[in-house]
Each structure stands twice: as structure tokens, then as C-alpha cells.
Amino acid sequence: MHPTNNSHTGILQRDLLVAIRQGSDFLNPLLFFVMTTTLVPLAVSPSPSQLAVIAPGMIWITALLATLLALDGIFKDDLADGSLLQIILSPKSLWSLVLAKVIAHWLKTGLPITLMAPLLGMMLSLPGEGYIPLVTGLAVGTACFSLIGAVGAALTVALQRGGVLLSLVVMPLYFPVLIFGASSVQRAVQGLEYLPVLAMLGAFFTFTLLTGPFAAAAALRVGING
């Protein structure tokens, strides 16, 4: 299959290929994630006991900001080179094509961030019990970020300076993910049961997976008019 065709796998393949060749698509959000987390001990305190308390929340906040940073380009680059119009005009259902873009975005930002998180957890002296909920929660949570974010990115796709607006529009919708994600880690660290919290995050993910692509597809049809 030629990677430039407009099937779901085609879009996915092309997006990932471009990202791998450029490198910056993977690296920039990841670097942002690492650098912002480095600010925490400098701004708060290097003492491990203090860092351990705020580590779950800080890692989740920086992960949220890092995915937000990369959100702007999710459809914008394709609008610039004209391929977005082809995607919209193609006979395939738009929501599934949007889903392919979302998966590509998650593979480029959410996944690397999730894989990097344990290292940052260690640097912020996160207690050992926290790592499993941190990684599973981030894997699911960043996927939610990509799904919800796609709606905002689609609405603002044709706007010149949509970046800040996009964060403003999308961030309130991120609150449940942040709450469930960060508290699952906190509960694990405190020795409490965290699986029900992760299950809630999973339920929210399922919900956004079922509704997000349709909303984003509708938003894309509107947003493209500028």
C-alpha cells in the first residue's frame, strides 16, 4: 500500500513516516515534558520528601501541557499542504480518518511521554508503588487528551493564531482526566486502592473514543472554512 493514499492506515503510515524522518515531531513534546519537569525541583525544592508529594501531580500537569503543545499541528500541517481537503473530500467516512490522525498524534506525543514518565518519576523521587498507575494512567490519559484535543484542533485549524485559543478551549475538558490520572498515582503511593480510579479513567477513555472522532469530524468540516 502506498503511504500517501487516503485510507486510515495510509494516513497513519504517512503521518508516522513524516514524523520519523523529521524527528522533531517526536522530540519536541518530549523535550518540553522533560524540561518543564526539571523546573519543578528548581522552583520548589530539591528535597526528595517534598518532591515525592508533588511528583504525581507535576508529571501529569507537564504531560498535559506537552500534549497540548503538539495539538496545534494535528490538522494544520495537512491544511497547509492541501492534503486535508483531500481527506475531507474522500469518500471514506471522515470520523475514521480523523481517528487515524488522532492515533498518529498519540503515537507521536502520548506514547513517548508515557515511556519517559518513569524516568522523570525517578528523578522526582516518586515512591515505587506509583509507577504502574503512572504509566497505565498516562497511556490512557494522553489518548484522551489527543481525542478531546482533536475537536479543538479541528475547530481552530484555519485560524492564524489558534494556538493559545486552542489551549483555552480544550483545557477545561481535560480536568476529569487530570483528576483521575493524578489521584490514581497518589492513591497508589498512599497505599490505597487505585484500580477503581484507573477504571474510571478507562471508562472516560471509552466514552471519548466513542464520541470524540464524530465531534472532531463535525468540527473539521466547520473549522476548515476559517
Partner: peptide, 11 residues
């Protein structure tokens, strides 16, 4: 903010 960002009213 979204309402103010667009030049086209319909959009």
C-alpha cells in the same frame, strides 16, 4: 474566545 476568533460569522 472562539466566537471572536473567526472572521466568517457562519463559521
Amino acid at each position: 474566545a472562539l466566537n471572536q476568533a473567526f472572521t466568517s460569522r457562519d463559521t
